[in-house]
Structure formats: C-alpha cells, structure tokens
C-alpha cells in the first residue's frame, strides 16, 4: 500500500471518528473542545494528515490536500449544525426562564388627568381660536359698573334679580356673575373689529345638583361693520358641531338679556340613548345692545356685533352625560381618573 492510500484511509477514519464524536457532543463547550481537537495546530487533521503531506510526491499532495479539505468542510458543517442546535436549545431554555404573564397589570407610572372642565374649556378655546378669535381674561372680583351698568343693567333693572350675586362690598364690588365684564373691558381698550372669547369662573348664589355657586362660563363677542343674526347662527352651528363632534340641529328661541337685542336661547336637538330627540337649551346669545356700544364709545350705527355665553359645566354634562354638577368640585380621584 502506498503512503497516499494509507493517509486517505486514515483520513476516512478520522472523519468517521470525528463524526461520531460530534454526534456525541452534549453541549457547545464539548463541541468547542472537539473543534480544537480536530482543527487546532495540534489537532488530528494537522498532526495526523497535513504534517505528512511533505512525504508525498508533488502530484499526490493536491489530491490528499483536496480530500483533507473536503473532510474539514464536512466536519465543520456538522459542527456548525450541531452548534446551531445547541444555541437554539440554550435560547429556548433562556426564553422559558424569562416567561412573563402578559395579562398581569402593568406597573404604571401615572400621568395626571386634566379636569373635565379644563378639557371642555380648552376644546372651546381651540374651536374659536381656529376661527381667529383671541382669549381675553379679567378679574373675578368685579365692580358693579362692569358687571351690570355697562351691560345695560342699571340698578333698578329687574334683570339684576335674575342673577343672585355674591357681593363683597354692597352695591359696589361683587364676584362677577358673568364673564361679560371682560368683553366690556376689552372693548374699552380696543377698536373694532374685535373677536374674543372670555372663558372663566363666575359666581352666583345657588347650590344644588344642577347649580354650583362657582362655575365656568365661556362667552364670545364679535364686533365688525356688518355682523348680523345670520352670522351668529353660522358661528353657533359651527361651534356646536365641533364641540359635540357631529352636526346638530339648532334653533334660536327669542329671549331677553339686558345686554343684547335681540336675544336668544339656543336649543340643540339632542338625542338620548334610546334615539328619542328633544330640544335642550345650551346657551344664550344675541346682538350686542346699542346701549352697550354707547357705554364703551362705539358708534352703533357703524358697528354691529353678536355676543354669546354658555356654562362650561352645562356643555360638559351634556357631552359626557353627567347628572350631578357637584362631581366637578369634589376632586374625587375615582371621578377625575374614571377608574371606577
């Protein structure tokens, strides 16, 4: 037998033994040891075969080299396969070790809830800001002049009884009963055209399931050269659609406020959960009374305007179908966060 055939035979033996050894390896560590044993500098292939390459004739060498490489590749592949399997097994053990229960509640860091009135007020503001209005604010302690007199409600006017006021100094200072004084203060400072809304707290002496002694109003005012009832209707229809998220039928019902003429209550056709509809009063409005314009020095022949006002609580209660207005002031966490 030639050396070559011996070596080839030996190679075949190495291959078979190695394959068995690979097959028997129990983990990736053992496999790594085998890799060193086969392919290392002192490994079986180097020591047993390649070292003896020099003893072959030059034309035999490539043959053995080629064969040795074939075996090497085969073993390499076998080891890789085996190794992949080990990795997969290890990964699956790890995966199992980290199993969680996705149905258990999360460990929550709570973000705060904004108050429903702030939320509703902000929505109102955004609707009117998108139309080009500005937001005006004013003091909550008002004098009688701004709260009543400039609003065409002199002392003798029976309409003053319609709003039971909290006075601080009798007949002089009171908690504003409406945010309309802000409109007057704005008109005193600016010349038309004017477009403002004035959201804020107002106070009236009334306290039960549907009235709070402190509540929030959002009033609006538009003054320009040709403002008419038709613009008022258009603005309110737009607002109602935006705030309730759907187009709703509205109607203007004539009413009386001292500072507007004509004056209206606005009813919205409201649908309950059974699909029954009825008209619900949502806000008051009207064309600014010429006397109000006179009190701020505007020429009522030149300028006309509309004003409207609504209770933010009222809108929020309709929107979120609430029945007890006192929920808004209690600050009960279960209500604020609605985790009930």
């Amino acid at each position: 037998m030639s050396l070559l055939s011996d070596l080839l035979k030996e190679l075949q033996q190495i291959k078979e033994l190695s394959e068995k050894a690979i097959e028997a390896a129990e983990n990736s560590q053992m496999l790594e040891e085998l890799r060193v044993r086969f392919f290392g500098k002192k490994g079986t292939i180097s020591q047993g075969i390649l070292k003896k390459l020099g003893a072959l004739s030059p034309d035999e060498r490539p043959l053995l080299g080629e064969k040795a490489n074939e075996v090497k590749t085969l073993l390499q592949e076998a080891m890789d396969r085996k190794n992949r399997r080990f990795l997969e097994e290890e990964e699956s053990v790890f995966e199992e070790s980290i199993r969680i229960d996705p149905t258990l509640p999360g460990a929550r860091r709570m973000a705060g809830f904004e108050h429903l009135i702030t939320k509703t007020q902000r929505e109102m503001e955004d609707i009117f800001l998108s139309l080009g209005y500005e937001i005006a604010e004013g003091p909550e302690i008002e004098n009688v002049y701004y709260n009543f007199e400039t609003l065409n409600t002199p002392d003798w006017h029976p309409a003053r009884d319609d709003q039971d006021s909290f006075y601080i100094v009798p007949d002089q200072w009171l908690l504003r009963t409406q945010t309309s004084p802000v409109q007057v203060r704005t008109m005193e400072k600016k010349t038309p055209p004017i477009a403002i809304i004035s959201p804020g707290k107002v106070y009236r002496s009334d306290y039960d399931a549907t009235h709070l002694p402190m509540f929030h109003q959002c009033e609006g005012l538009l003054v320009d050269t040709d403002v008419s009832v038709s613009h008022l209707k258009g603005t309110l229809e737009y607002f109602i659609e935006k705030i309730f998220g759907e187009r709703k039928k509205i109607r203007l019902r004539p009413s009386f406020f001292p500072f507007t003429e004509p004056s209206f209550e606005v009813d919205v056709l409201w649908e309950n959960k059974y699909g029954e509809t009825r008209w619900l009063e949502v806000l008051g409005c009207g064309m600014v009374d010429p006397n109000v314009f006179r009190s701020v020095g505007y020429d009522s022949e030149k300028w006309t305007g509309f004003a409207f006002g609504m209770g933010i609580e009222r809108i929020a209660m309709l929107k979120y179908r609430l029945t007890d207005i006192r929920d808004f002031i209690r600050g009960y966490a279960h209500f604020i966060r609605q985790d009930l």
Binding site: I135, I196, V229, S230, K233
Partner: peptide, 20 residues
C-alpha cells in the same frame, strides 16, 4: 321667526388673535 334667517360663518377680521 328665525328659521328663515340664513346661516353664514363670518370671516373674522380682528387682528388680535390667539392666546397671550
């Protein structure tokens, strides 16, 4: 009656707008 009054969304010409 106000049913017959047309509905127009006016273009606001005021120059002071937005939040302070």
């Amino acid at each position: 009656g106000y049913e017959q009054v047309p509905t127009i969304l006016p273009v606001v010409r005021a120059t002071d707008r937005g939040r302070t």
